[in-house]
């Protein structure tokens, strides 16, 4: 009997396994229905109640893409989680950006979903922030303010794009990107093309670094000190695009829109060759 059964053991296992697994599969599916039938009735636009009487919803004016002017607004319910966008090491040009400007002249305080105030936040806006080097090492991740899942604790969400094509944070001719960032966020601008005027141009931007003798030193600007004069000067000479050597933007909210605050037509955010991972904090 054993000899008769032995050659068929593999087949036996597969039949039993198939029977069990197939019944398991039956459990995977159930009666369907349209999403509309199963969804709750809701008010338009922002149906979730962000605090009692929606009181914790934050109102943000949106940049027109020209200086400090705004048009339209958006009212998100903020998670209160802080993100950080980093790229570059300061030694080589890794990105280009158009017209990065500080929309509001002073810091603002915003509130998260639970009504907690977050202070020293600055509103900046730009166009066509494009990574230009594979060596940029772009990373976007949460760095603070994430909630805990049971005993697992808080989490980190990380997006890591890489390779060519390269990330874009605001692509399309009608796309404007607004961010609300912390005052200690830093960008390092390449103003070496201004030669002996690099130091002066950097000063107009609110930064420091280049000198008469070392105009190629990156112009380091913290957002709290960011000035609009460099942007105005660049716009005046028809060259409002400049190169970045390093970016470290810590922010609570980012939104893409058009110059009137509506929905733009472009593929605004592009994360090519990207890995997205969730991990518990150590």
């Amino acid at each position: 009997m054993a000899l008769l059964h032995a050659p068929r053991r593999g087949a036996q296992r597969m039949v039993v396994l198939a029977a069990v697994l197939l019944f398991g599969c039956v459990m995977l599916v159930g009666p369907g229905g349209s999403g509309e039938q199963q969804a709750k009735a809701a008010a338009p636009n922002f149906p979730f109640a962000c605090g009692a009487s929606d009181a914790n919803r934050q109102t943000f004016a949106l940049s027109t893409g020209s200086g400090t002017s705004t048009s339209g607004s958006i009212t998100p319910c903020l998670s209160g989680s802080e993100l950080e966008l980093t790229l570059g090491s300061g030694s080589a040009n890794v990105a280009s950006i158009q017209g990065m400007t500080k929309v509001q002249s002073s810091a603002v305080t915003v509130k998260d979903a639970n009504g907690t105030a977050i202070s020293n936040i600055w509103h900046i806006a730009f166009k066509n922030f494009t990574v230009t080097s594979d060596s940029a090492g772009t990373v976007l991740k949460t760095i603070a303010g994430t909630a805990a899942a049971g005993s697992q604790g808080a989490y980190t969400l990380t997006l890591t794009p890489g390779g060519s094509p390269r990330p874009v944070f605001g692509a399309g001719s009608d796309v404007i990107t607004d961010m609300w960032v912390t005052g200690d966020s830093v960008v390092k601008i390449d103003l070496s093309g201004w030669s002996i005027l690099a130091g002066t141009a950097c000063g107009l931007a609110g930064g420091s670094g280049p000198t008469l003798l070392n105009p190629s030193t990156p112009c380091t600007v913290t957002v709290a000190n960011l000035g609009g004069d460099l942007i105005a000067l660049l716009a005046a000479i028809g060259a409002d695009t400049y190169n970045l050597k390093q970016v470290d933007l810590k922010f609570y909210y980012l939104v893409t829109h058009n110059s009137s605050g509506g929905v733009p037509s472009g593929d605004a955010l592009q994360f090519p060759n990207t890995t997205v991972a969730v991990s518990p904090n150590p």
């Binding site: 979730f48 903020l78 893409t256 929905v263 605004a268």
Partner: peptide, 14 residues
């Protein structure tokens, strides 16, 4: 091309 988000995109809301 990876991830391409079009139109009005938001990061940071709950």
């Amino acid at each position: 091309a990876g991830i391409v988000l079009s139109g009005q995109d938001q990061i940071g809301l709950a």
